[in-house]
Computed example of a mutant assay.
Amino acid sequence: MKIIFRTYQFELQPTQEQKVLLDKHFGCIRYVYNYFLNERKEQYQANKKSDNYYKQAATLTELKKKEETAWLKEVNSQSLQFVLRCLDTAYVNFFRGNAKFPRFKSRKKKNSFTVPQFAKLEGGRFFAPKFKEGI
Protein backbone atom coordinates (compact mmCIF):
# COMPACT_ATOMS: atom_id res chain seq x y z
CA MET A 1 0.00 0.00 0.00
CA LYS A 2 1.37 3.40 -0.99
CA ILE A 3 0.78 6.41 1.25
CA ILE A 4 0.27 9.72 -0.52
CA PHE A 5 0.86 12.97 1.34
CA ARG A 6 -0.85 16.06 0.01
CA THR A 7 -0.68 19.75 0.67
CA TYR A 8 -3.63 22.02 0.11
CA GLN A 9 -3.84 25.78 -0.18
CA PHE A 10 -7.15 27.51 0.48
CA GLU A 11 -8.57 30.98 0.52
CA LEU A 12 -10.41 31.22 3.80
CA GLN A 13 -13.43 33.36 4.60
CA PRO A 14 -13.30 33.54 8.40
CA THR A 15 -15.75 35.25 10.71
CA GLN A 16 -14.54 38.16 12.84
CA GLU A 17 -13.97 35.83 15.80
CA GLN A 18 -11.96 33.44 13.62
CA LYS A 19 -9.90 36.34 12.23
CA VAL A 20 -8.82 37.17 15.77
CA LEU A 21 -7.81 33.55 16.38
CA LEU A 22 -5.91 33.43 13.08
CA ASP A 23 -4.07 36.62 14.03
CA LYS A 24 -3.18 35.04 17.37
CA HIS A 25 -1.77 32.02 15.53
CA PHE A 26 0.30 34.22 13.22
CA GLY A 27 1.61 36.29 16.11
CA CYS A 28 2.49 33.31 18.30
CA ILE A 29 4.24 31.53 15.44
CA ARG A 30 6.26 34.65 14.68
CA TYR A 31 7.09 35.20 18.36
CA VAL A 32 8.28 31.61 18.92
CA TYR A 33 10.37 31.60 15.75
CA ASN A 34 12.02 34.95 16.51
CA TYR A 35 12.52 34.12 20.20
CA PHE A 36 14.31 30.86 19.52
CA LEU A 37 16.28 32.23 16.55
CA ASN A 38 17.57 34.99 18.82
CA GLU A 39 18.36 32.42 21.51
CA ARG A 40 20.33 30.31 19.03
CA LYS A 41 22.28 33.32 17.76
CA GLU A 42 23.23 34.34 21.29
CA GLN A 43 24.26 30.80 22.24
CA TYR A 44 26.38 30.43 19.14
CA GLN A 45 28.12 33.76 19.66
CA ALA A 46 28.85 32.85 23.28
CA ASN A 47 30.25 29.32 22.89
CA LYS A 48 30.03 28.29 19.20
CA LYS A 49 27.20 25.83 19.97
CA SER A 50 23.43 26.17 20.14
CA ASP A 51 20.48 24.08 21.29
CA ASN A 52 18.87 21.56 18.97
CA TYR A 53 15.15 21.02 18.36
CA TYR A 54 14.61 18.78 21.39
CA LYS A 55 16.13 21.21 23.89
CA GLN A 56 14.18 24.07 22.36
CA ALA A 57 10.93 22.08 22.49
CA ALA A 58 11.50 21.53 26.22
CA THR A 59 12.21 25.24 26.62
CA LEU A 60 8.98 26.03 24.74
CA THR A 61 7.03 23.98 27.29
CA GLU A 62 8.63 25.96 30.11
CA LEU A 63 7.98 29.21 28.24
CA LYS A 64 4.25 28.39 28.00
CA LYS A 65 4.11 27.86 31.78
CA LYS A 66 5.39 31.37 32.53
CA GLU A 67 2.75 33.95 33.35
CA GLU A 68 4.02 36.60 30.90
CA THR A 69 3.86 34.17 27.95
CA ALA A 70 0.81 32.14 28.98
CA TRP A 71 -0.96 33.46 25.85
CA LEU A 72 1.02 30.88 23.85
CA LYS A 73 -1.44 28.26 25.14
CA GLU A 74 -4.22 29.82 23.05
CA VAL A 75 -2.83 28.33 19.81
CA ASN A 76 -2.23 24.80 18.61
CA SER A 77 0.89 23.42 20.31
CA GLN A 78 1.78 21.26 17.30
CA SER A 79 1.99 24.36 15.14
CA LEU A 80 4.45 25.91 17.60
CA GLN A 81 6.53 22.73 17.63
CA PHE A 82 6.53 22.65 13.84
CA VAL A 83 8.03 26.16 13.81
CA LEU A 84 10.89 24.88 15.96
CA ARG A 85 11.38 22.01 13.52
CA CYS A 86 11.53 24.50 10.63
CA LEU A 87 14.05 26.65 12.50
CA ASP A 88 16.20 23.59 13.19
CA THR A 89 16.07 22.65 9.50
CA ALA A 90 17.02 26.20 8.50
CA TYR A 91 20.02 26.11 10.84
CA VAL A 92 21.17 22.72 9.56
CA ASN A 93 20.85 23.88 5.94
CA PHE A 94 22.84 27.03 6.73
CA PHE A 95 25.73 25.12 8.29
CA ARG A 96 25.77 22.63 5.42
CA GLY A 97 26.07 25.54 3.00
CA ASN A 98 22.71 24.88 1.32
CA ALA A 99 21.00 28.12 2.40
CA LYS A 100 21.48 31.59 3.82
CA PHE A 101 21.32 32.32 7.52
CA PRO A 102 17.71 32.26 8.83
CA ARG A 103 16.07 35.68 9.13
CA PHE A 104 13.65 36.95 11.70
CA LYS A 105 9.97 36.78 10.73
CA SER A 106 8.24 40.08 10.07
CA ARG A 107 4.61 41.01 10.59
CA LYS A 108 4.59 42.76 7.21
CA LYS A 109 5.57 39.74 5.14
CA LYS A 110 3.70 36.53 4.44
CA ASN A 111 1.89 35.16 7.48
CA SER A 112 1.39 31.43 7.58
CA PHE A 113 1.32 28.50 9.96
CA THR A 114 1.18 24.74 9.60
CA VAL A 115 -1.30 22.39 11.20
CA PRO A 116 0.55 19.05 11.19
CA GLN A 117 -2.29 16.92 12.60
CA PHE A 118 -6.03 16.78 13.07
CA ALA A 119 -6.93 19.16 10.26
CA LYS A 120 -9.78 18.12 8.02
CA LEU A 121 -11.97 19.41 5.24
CA GLU A 122 -15.68 18.61 5.45
CA GLY A 123 -18.63 20.18 3.69
CA GLY A 124 -16.66 23.09 2.29
CA ARG A 125 -15.32 24.01 5.73
CA PHE A 126 -11.79 23.71 7.08
CA PHE A 127 -11.53 22.32 10.62
CA ALA A 128 -8.34 22.78 12.65
CA PRO A 129 -7.49 22.42 16.36
CA LYS A 130 -8.46 25.43 18.54
CA PHE A 131 -11.09 26.53 15.98
CA LYS A 132 -14.46 25.50 17.41
CA GLU A 133 -16.31 25.92 14.13
CA GLY A 134 -15.05 25.28 10.64
CA ILE A 135 -13.75 28.15 8.57
Results as ranks from 00 to 15, higher is better:
residue 91 Y to K: 11
residue 54 Y to M: 09
residue 5 F to E: 09
residue 29 I to D: 00
residue 100 K to V: 13
residue 98 N to I: 13
residue 2 K to V: 10
residue 88 D to E: 07
residue 1 M to E: 13
residue 27 G to V: 05
residue 60 L to W: 02
residue 17 E to T: 09
residue 3 I to M: 09
residue 24 K to I: 12
residue 66 K to E: 03
residue 73 K to D: 06
residue 28 C to K: 02
residue 62 E to F: 08
residue 48 K to E: 10
residue 23 D to Y: 10
residue 13 Q to S: 13
residue 57 A to L: 05
residue 28 C to L: 02
residue 111 N to E: 11
residue 52 N to A: 09
residue 57 A to Y: 04
residue 129 P to M: 11
residue 133 E to V: 12
residue 87 L to I: 08
residue 122 E to N: 13
residue 27 G to C: 02
residue 29 I to H: 04
residue 49 K to W: 10
residue 103 R to I: 13
residue 49 K to D: 12
residue 61 T to W: 00
residue 35 Y to H: 12
residue 20 V to Q: 10
residue 132 K to M: 12
residue 130 K to Y: 00
residue 20 V to H: 09
residue 111 N to Q: 15
residue 54 Y to I: 09
residue 104 F to V: 05
residue 27 G to S: 04
residue 82 F to I: 10
residue 119 A to D: 04
residue 22 L to K: 00
residue 77 S to A: 11
residue 80 L to T: 07
residue 98 N to V: 14
residue 46 A to D: 14
residue 124 G to Q: 11
residue 106 S to A: 10
residue 83 V to D: 05
residue 121 L to P: 11
residue 19 K to S: 11
residue 123 G to N: 15
residue 37 L to A: 00
residue 24 K to R: 14
residue 50 S to A: 11
residue 22 L to C: 04
residue 24 K to F: 05
residue 18 Q to Y: 03
residue 12 L to N: 07
residue 30 R to M: 03
residue 32 V to I: 01
residue 29 I to K: 02
residue 57 A to I: 06
residue 119 A to M: 06
residue 82 F to W: 12
residue 7 T to D: 06
residue 90 A to Y: 04
residue 45 Q to W: 14
residue 129 P to A: 11
residue 103 R to F: 11
residue 132 K to D: 15
residue 52 N to E: 07
residue 1 M to Q: 13
residue 101 F to D: 08
residue 85 R to V: 07
residue 94 F to N: 14
residue 77 S to Y: 07
